[in-house]
């Protein structure tokens, strides 16, 4: 033992030295360090939970906003749809009325044309009659025989064929 340098008092002194060091360190140094670490860990955990809460809140808000937006969009869609049906209706109405008017105009024009035709025809007949009378007078005045008379009338009629 002596040759190895092991001896009681020194051994004891070393143990005592270590115990004193241990007591000093575990009283003065480690508690504040561990406390600091734990506090920081806790703080980080708290921060994380706070962040999580904030995130959830933001998420909820976003969802709400989205919802609102969706609603508004639907409303707008509905309005557009309504307006478009309205417009369709108006268009149909306008079209219908225009068609009716056109029809009326057409009918009126037809009637007018018919009347004009009748009037012209009547006019023509009247003139034909007058002309016939004139021709007859002339034939009579000349005193032509019956056959010539007929031939003249027929010639005249074919010349002035109205039909």
């Amino acid at each position: 033992m002596d040759a190895l340098g092991i001896n009681g008092p020194f051994l004891l002194a070393q143990i005592v030295n270590f115990v004193i060091l241990y007591l000093l360190l575990s009283r003065l140094v480690f508690p504040p360090l561990l406390k600091m670490l734990d506090e920081r860990k806790q703080k980080i955990a708290e921060g994380l939970t706070a962040a999580e809460v904030a995130r959830q809140e933001a998420e909820a808000e976003r969802a709400q906003l989205m919802n609102q937006l969706e609603q508004e969009r639907a409303e707008a869609q509905r309005r557009i749809a309504a307006a478009s049906t309205q417009a369709e209706k108006v268009k149909a109405e306008i079209l219908a009325s225009a068609q009716k008017e056109a029809e009326e105009i057409k009918v009126k024009a037809k009637l007018e044309a018919e009347a004009e035709k009748q009037r012209i025809l009547a006019d023509a007949e009247k003139q034909i009659a007058e002309l016939t009378m004139l021709a007859t007078e002339r034939v009579v005045r000349l005193g032509m025989d019956q056959s010539l008379q007929h031939k003249l009338i027929e010639d005249f009629l074919s010349e002035t064929s109205l039909n």
Binding site: Q14, N17, L28, V29, F30, L33, E39, K43
Partner: peptide, 22 residues
């Protein structure tokens, strides 16, 4: 040398916790 090591450890430990900041 043992005392020297003691002093070193204590000094470093105490200096480390002297002005603890978050």
């Amino acid at each position: 040398a043992t005392l020297l090591a003691d002093i070193t450890v204590l000094l470093i430990g105490l200096l480390a916790v002297r002005k603890m900041k978050d």
